Simulated scan of single mutants.
Amino acid sequence: MSRANRVPLADRVARAAEAALAARSFVSAIDVLVGIGWLDPEAVERWRRGQVDYLERVIRTNLPRISEAMKLFRSWATARGPNASQTVYVARTPRRQTLRFSRSGNPAIDASYRTHWVSPELSERKRARLMEKASHAPELVVIQPLNDAWRCHRCGGTDDLLMMENRSPACLRCIGLDDLEFLPAGDALLTRRVKARSTRYAVVVRFSRTRGRYERQGLLVEPQALADVQRDLVR
């Protein structure tokens, strides 16, 4: 038996919740499940990209243990005193579909996952700002593949860029982003202003074999927004 398994689950849940609350002034079920080692952050990202149909599929334990941890988390929150707030989770895909948490799809279970517990020490204004930020739809992420061997699962074609969709790559034309223009990283002022003006944009990343992670290459933005900002900057 591992050392972690010898620690009572209630203590592990409480420690993970306290750590997340101290770090961000709010805590979610995902924070706790990651903190106790049952959920891999990379698996969370795949779920948020729509590559996993429901979160419980990638939690590394059985449903009774998940249920036990969720009950312990709610008990901790009730005793600790944070304020409950429902947060919307949407996928990092152009469709922005609502993400599913539970295998059963039970609305009450999914609602418990969506509940964020906010520190009572924050003012009402700060709590509102924090929850508004947490509810923002995540940025779309487009990948620059390392080779051209991939094929779009919709049309069978290929391109310089792709987006993962339901565990499979899709080309920008099929997902409706082929009208956007690539803005390379490097000019922070230009990037910031174009991002603010473009109603649709996506982050472009490429995997670095040397660093073992995806790194930002630039943005896909609306051509008119880019042209307008470039014109403003030369005036």
Rank of each mutant, 00 (worst) to 15 (best):
T93N: 01
V141N: 02
T158A: 14
Q144A: 14
E121N: 06
R49H: 13
R96N: 15
E124Y: 07
Q86C: 02
L146Q: 07
P107W: 06
A128C: 03
W150S: 13
H116D: 08
L63A: 14
R151E: 12
A108T: 09
L39D: 15
D40L: 09
R100P: 01
K71R: 15
R57I: 04
D110M: 09
G105P: 08
V44S: 02
R49G: 01
G81D: 07
S123H: 03
P64N: 15
R154W: 05
L33S: 09
R154M: 06
F101R: 04
T93L: 02
A91L: 04
Q97N: 06
A91H: 01
R92I: 00
V142D: 00
A79T: 07
G105D: 12
V90I: 11
A134M: 14
C152W: 05
R96K: 11
I59E: 02
I66H: 05
A134Y: 07
S119V: 11
P138M: 10
S102R: 07
S112M: 14
G105Y: 10
P120S: 10
V52A: 00
T98K: 13
S119Q: 15
I109V: 15
W38Q: 09
R49W: 03
N83I: 12
L39M: 09
V142R: 00
V118M: 08
E139W: 01
A69H: 01
G81Y: 05
G35A: 11
I66P: 12
E68K: 15
P41M: 07
P138D: 10
P82W: 05
S112I: 08
L140Q: 02
F101P: 05
L39S: 09
G81W: 12
F101C: 03
L99E: 01
P82F: 04
W47Y: 03
R92D: 05
P107Q: 08
G105F: 06
A111F: 08
R125H: 04
E132S: 13
S75K: 12
L72F: 04
C155F: 13
T158E: 14
E42V: 07
V142C: 04
A77I: 05
G157C: 06
W76G: 01
T61P: 00
L122A: 07
E45Y: 00
M70P: 01
L140Y: 01
T78P: 00
S104W: 05
T115C: 12
A84W: 08
M131E: 08
S135E: 14
A69C: 13
S104F: 07
A137V: 08
R74T: 12
E42I: 10
I109S: 08
I59Y: 03
L99S: 03
T93A: 04
A137H: 06
